[in-house]
Computed example of a mutant assay.
Amino acid sequence: MSVLLEVIATTVADARLAARAGADRLELVTAMGEGGLTPSLGLIEAVVAAVTIPVNVIVRPHSRSFVYDADDYAVMLRDVRAVKAAGAHGVVIGMLDGEGEIDRDGLARVIDAADGLAITFHRAFDEARDLHASLDVLLGFEAVMNVLTSGGQPSVLNAEATIRELVRQAAGSHCTVLAGAGLTVDAVSGFVSRTQVQAVHFGSGVRVGSQGLAPVDADKVAQVRALLDANR
């Protein structure tokens, strides 16, 4: 089985280019320079209508931290319901408490609001105090289908050993380790074979000039797709 390829989209054009070039799934965000914030409802609806592959939508109300107050949660739960109503495949969320642990209560409330949508826990995971203990917590939530992680490093390419351990820890569960942040076309083949990941996440690495705010480069997406297919 080929490794799943998820690509970040910030516009309808991004979404179309990535889907045509071989992405398996999209992560739809706005404000990529801030690590991704909740996109507008209009953008979510337009992207869902424009592509046939699954669209996962980030729900993140601000970029201050991953510790949220009651008002933040009220906003997030509204957004999660709107994402579901817009026809998206899943939501991408993440929350921690003040001690750097997964906020289980907050996560449970989001899962309830998502009402069956697939949940990806995003890179808030990388700021958790203990990655292995945190993955254990997430494995206890049936709705959490993916954990997006760079292995606690700014670039996932510097965390191969950690990713390999997390992949082993999640093996046989309902949850996939989605490796991302810092992946490049040149590095992806070796990274996948050394870590045994089943899913990779690309942002800047498949954009024009490898710039986060640039459009998706369809040729780069197609290259990654071909490398992943050759690696199966």
Rank of each mutant, 00 (worst) to 15 (best):
L4N: 14
L17G: 03
A18S: 03
A19Y: 00
G22F: 09
D24V: 06
D24P: 08
A31C: 08
G33V: 05
G35N: 04
L41S: 02
E45H: 09
V48P: 01
V51S: 09
T52I: 11
T52W: 04
I53R: 11
V55Q: 00
V59C: 04
F66L: 02
V67C: 11
Y68R: 06
D69E: 08
D72I: 03
L77Y: 03
D79Y: 06
D79E: 03
V80L: 03
V83F: 03
K84W: 11
A86F: 12
I93R: 00
L96K: 00
E99Y: 05
G100C: 10
G100W: 01
I102D: 07
I102H: 05
I111L: 05
D112C: 05
A114Y: 10
G116R: 13
G116F: 13
F121H: 07
F121T: 07
A124D: 02
L131W: 13
V144R: 03
V144E: 06
N146W: 08
L148V: 07
G151D: 13
S155E: 10
A161M: 13
I163K: 13
Q169T: 11
Q169L: 14
G172Y: 13
H174I: 13
L178D: 04
L178M: 10
A181V: 15
A187V: 15
A187C: 12
Q196D: 15
L213Q: 09
L213R: 10
P215G: 05
V216N: 04
D217T: 01
D229Y: 09
A230R: 12
A230T: 10
R232Q: 12
R232S: 13
